[in-house]
Design a binder for these strands. Sequence first.
RNA 1: GGGCGGUUAACUCAGCUGGUAGAGUGUCAUCUUGACGUGGUGAAAGUCGUAGGUUCGAGUCCUAUACCGCCCACCA
Length: 883
Amino acid sequence: MLENLPKTYNPKDFEERLYNYWNDSGHFIAHVDENKKPYTIMMPPPNVTGSLHMGHALNNTIQDILIRWKRMEGYSALWLPGTDHASISTEARVVNKIKAEGKTKEGLGREGFIEEAWEWTHKYGNTIKNQLKKLGVSSDWTRDRFTLDEGLSNAVEEVFIRLYEKGLVYRGDRIINWCPSCMTAISDAEVEHEDQDGHIWHIRYPIKDSEDYIIIATTRPETMLGDLAIAVHPEDERYKELVGKTAILPLMNREIPIVADDYVEMEFGTGAVKITPSHDLNDFEVGARHGLGQCIIMNENGTISPEGNIYQGLERYEARKRIVEDLEKQGFLVETKEHQNAIGHCERCSTVVEPLISKQWFVKMEPLARPALEAYDRGELNFIPERFGKVYVNWLENIRDWCISRQLWWGHRLPVYYCDDCGEIMVSKTKPHNCSKCNGVNIHQDNDTLDTWFSSALWPFSTLGWPEKTEDLGYFFPTDVLVTGYDIIFFWVIRMVFSSLEQMGELPFKDVFLTGLVRDSEGRKMSKSLGNGIDPLEIIEEYGADALRFTLVTGNTPGNDMRFYMERVEANRNFANKLWNASRFVLMNLEEGIEKSQFDVEKLEEEDRWIISRLNTVIKEATENLDKYEIGLAAGRIYDFIWDEYCDWYIEMVKSRLYGDDVSSKETAEQVLLYVLKDILKLLHPFMPFITEEIWQHLPGNDSPLILSSWPEYKNELDFPDSEGAIEFIKTAIKSIRNARAEMNIAQSKKSNQIFVTDDEKIKSIIAKGERYFLNLASADEIEFSENKEGMGEDNISVVLDRCEVYLPLKELIDFEKEIDRLEKEKEKLEVEIKRVNGKLSNDGFVKKAPEKVVLEERKKKDKYEEMLEKVLERLEGLKSNR
RNA sequence: GGGCGGUUAACUCAGCUGGUAGAGUGUCAUCUUGACGUGGUGAAAGUCGUAGGUUCGAGUCCUAUACCGCCCACCA
């Protein structure tokens, strides 16, 4: 009955079954329960049409570990999942899809297109959710949300209107980043700067009614078509006389003023700058200061507008080429230099972004950023790792207004209406019947949609029903921790913080856990274009979700990028296999019937107390590390305990009792094996949920049908320091004996007597009680004791231990030259240690200033090493004189 | 131009508040012992980037510096 685990660990046999069981039985559903403390995590919503990549796998594994752990600790733990409509990216996909069918956006019209987009969303929207389930995420699917849900859309409109009414959302003509490919405005955060080799051109602008001229420098010569001035620094002696005069714009023959403005850097270029107010942020500001007006020379698709005269219709780079040629032909080009420059690209499609003036909607950032900075300064917001706090502060301190309108159709349409008669702007959730100003009835809604991040910014509370005062909102908000990649601090983290402070009056979360990037084995970013991405699902298919999860959270540190190695997945799969087989071993040896894990403390033997005491420590350390978000360290502690202490030592030590005749001892061993195994499974469960649950369900006498029920507790009364000391001594002795035998090439099967020479009663008793350990684990035939080493002879191997020496009579097998070499090595090691300890102890400063405890320890070490060295030397002497 | 991270065993990385350097993988040797060869046992392998400093004591703190990488930034 008990031995019913299959012989080999095969995760495919049970992962899916267990997930469905958990999910169907409602264990992931969080309940508002005033008797419990809430613990809340909002899942960063992946793109609704996306599919799972390693980044998702990493941060969802971390969230799952935290939420499972807290659930086991007794919290009412909510992990709310959902997806994001991802306006710009989804729209682009849908456009491609209909294009393949020979259709266009314009052809379909707004409503038709949105219908297509919903269809697409419904078709692909479940893909990533199903993939997350394979990973084992224990999120509450009954609370699944989508950013375009009715409720969330309502929250978006509510926030927009509130901000508008407070004057924090406004409409204006400003320089924005325009993507000529996506054909929409994008925010500063969506522009990626990349240094590129380019040119800087020096161009001569003639001065009107004069032979004189002024030379300017530019990296974007095509924008000269829109030049409305030349600016120089007011203090620049070179140009003082020219200020106030008029220059003639080459190619266009437009008269433009020469103005003085201290924005100009005298040292850069020629010290004279062409001013194109409609196509450059700085120029826009200079233009405003000098009343220059606007001249837009580029269309939305990146071609030259009618304002560009004979260059009209040319693509922007073609125009640049033609303009430079023409300038050269007409003698205006002074020189062309190589120049490196940071060029802005669209984060979505990598097209070079064009700064241009446009009428857009903005969020006024300064009043929102201030509270966000103050909250951080008060220490209410923690970043893990801390260093990302600086990134947060730096961004907020230099923030500019946020352009939130997008010329897209897929998303939240602005709740803004215009009166066609008087132009009045009305902001409202529903279309007004009459103009609030002129009472006219010709009213139309703004065509733009909002930046996707405007809705994601509300995620921590919009998902809980805000602006309604729901029970969920009252109980689960604010959330506890946000787990996400450091690459979206600007896009998302900061925007959630200020949105929540503004709307809810408090932070959306206390802690922000930032993960690094998962890179390929050569350290490259995984990307579609490189084709170096590793599909988490393939890993799960081959090695199981548990191995993948463990790989992602061990061996690296929060916020650092990691390389993904198949070898590590394999190693972790092997670990799972190890646990699987250890569990099989336990089950095979359990006798049926009684409740086995309740041991009687009085009946515990040395190794039982040792493993229980060690388990106690591991529980404490693992919990402490989880508390500090040191997930990798916690996992490492548990791994080491399972493999090194439970499997390699405890199980081996206990075997003789299981196969022996002492029924009581056997029963205690079984109880402890099971007791420790159960806690091991619980400790490991958040990390490896599937295998632990599967094994759990095969164990007898469980207090709960599911392992998710409780987290092991540290128990003071189960600390046994004396037993730990005794077993540590035994382990060291066994290792030393094994080592000596292996160095002498003595087969494990070749047994010998082991004669322990010691006059230390305590050590003697430890060894005597541990006889069976030496018989089973150190190839001893029989152990004997001797008060002194008289009569030991020089034909034995001798292993020197602390306060003890062991002789292994293996006469005919010993190569004494080899034994001398081995002891020489031993001697050198000891001498190095003694030298080090002596160095410390003879240092006056150390003895006086170091803590007493440390000094005492060093003294003990000194005595120990000296004693051991003495024995080694005696042996060496004896061996050498005998040869 | 600012800011940040990395530099520790052949490879990939841990090493939290300073007190004799650890793991996984790989390598070598060995073992069909009644859970596991996806295993057991043992071994070899590190001047902790460099130079200073603080300290009785530094991989760990401070200051420089080199190399690699990342982020931010309106010098046209």
